[in-house]
Write a protein that binds this DNA or RNA. Structure first.
Lengths: 227, 227
DNA sequence: CATAACTGCGATCGGTGTTCGCAATTTAGT
DNA sequence: ACTAAATTGCGAACACCGATCGCAGTTATG
């Protein structure tokens, strides 16, 4: 675990760089050219050092990715005061989280293994749980609710990013494949949904869609049991 | 797109293997040792052929992963008759989907880029939309609902798999880190949730939890607009 | 029966994460 | 003050990975 190990020992020569420096360089690369571009070699090159040197700051690339993730998690504003309405507060938080995802598209590519929070992630979780404080649900379920909301944020971010990305040709091929299924009279529901969904278009702001869905999911999730 | 290209040309010598064979070998490897183990080299070795030969059947590793995904999607039973209650039907479908995820843990590692469905994926989507047919919602939203349910399935599968996986030491480290934050009197909500969630344990069947959450989310999602 | 199309595949390219060993440097303990 | 331990940067290497090229051998079509 990165957060446990100290950044520097006390004995040797002063380190030329720092974890924060590595993290910043890696984030820059990933922002510009995707998560894969944040490779040890490229990060080292960006820092003007040897790639083997990076392992003095970080014990694996996964560690570096943990650092990156925690760093951008810190970009979510946690000073927004809570209104007391859990649904509104969590939806607002999710909204800000999604914005960070759009700003750092590689976030949707880091596998969200549970329990990898660093200090900023911890602050984030604390805020989310504070927002959920008025809800009379066991803590375990609240934790799962937060995880679930984050999964949804990632999902929506993926959608919004995917539509802007240069996958035009790929999507064209896929859509052609779907159309074929539609004209073959099999899969009528898919055909109907496609026709409806693509023809009618979605000039609607994705943000409104996101908040609507989020609100509905949350309301469904935290409503008291009806025995 | 894999599904568009024909599997075999008509001119040359008979192919020794087939896409289905590649797919089965790859799935076997991935089931046993994770998605990374389903590399071109290892699949080739498992088939007793040269790795370059695989590119006669598949134009990239992504294609192979598409084939794998579609194949296991076919393991979801789509012959279960619909009850007519969209919530129940979709929850049941999600349940069966989650079972497939538990049987093929690597599924949670394939990046769920939208619109990569093969024939079985298409059947799956058709079934899901059929289940949602009674709901008076635009097709676009129904599509998004299905995607959302799938994201949730992945999320739950990840949780269930993670708790069984041999991450005992990793989680121990993470939990120690959280405990530290708890004892530091900062992050009181996290501390409370941890105490509650870990002490009280969850001897509850995860399946019940899954269905409960799923049902709530769906109910919230498909309820008619309240102006 | 010639030619176009296809197959299997060894060799190879450029990339990745990670480890090792070594010289140089700094601090801690005496 | 000086030895010894700890730590740093880093070149070289290892073991993988996905993908491409070119060539010999095979098959079906015109």
């Amino acid at each position: 675990m990165v957060w446990a190990r100290p950044e520097r020992g006390a004995r040797g020569p002063a380190a030329v760089h720092s974890r924060a420096e590595l993290t910043a360089a890696a984030i820059g690369l990933a922002d510009r050219s995707g998560l894969a571009a944040a490779s040890m070699r490229q990060v080292a090159k960006a820092l003007g050092t040897g790639q083997a040197s990076l392992y003095r700051y970080v014990s694996s690339r996964d560690d570096l990715i943990d650092l990156m993730t925690d760093a951008v998690t810190g970009e979510v504003d946690l000073d927004v005061p809570l209104t007391g309405d859990p649904v509104e507060d969590v939806v607002a938080l999710a909204s800000r989280t999604k914005a960070v995802h759009l700003r750092h598209p590689w976030l949707v590519d880091v596998s969200p293994e549970p329990l990898r929070l660093g200090p900023r992630g911890l602050d984030y979780l604390e805020y989310a749980l504070r927002a959920l404080a008025p809800v009379p649900l066991p803590g375990r379920i609240k934790l799962e609710t937060v995880a679930l909301m984050n999964a949804l944020v990632t999902q929506f971010a993926r959608t919004e990013l995917g539509s802007s990305r240069e996958d035009a040709d790929r999507r064209a091929g896929q859509i052609a494949y779907l159309r074929e299924a539609a004209t073959r009279r099999t899969h009528p529901h898919v055909a109907a949904a496609m026709a409806e969904g693509v023809e009618a278009g979605s000039p609607q702001a994705p943000q409104a869609m996101f908040e609507r869905t989020m609100r509905r999911v949350l309301t469904g999730l935290i409503r008291p049991d009806s025995p």
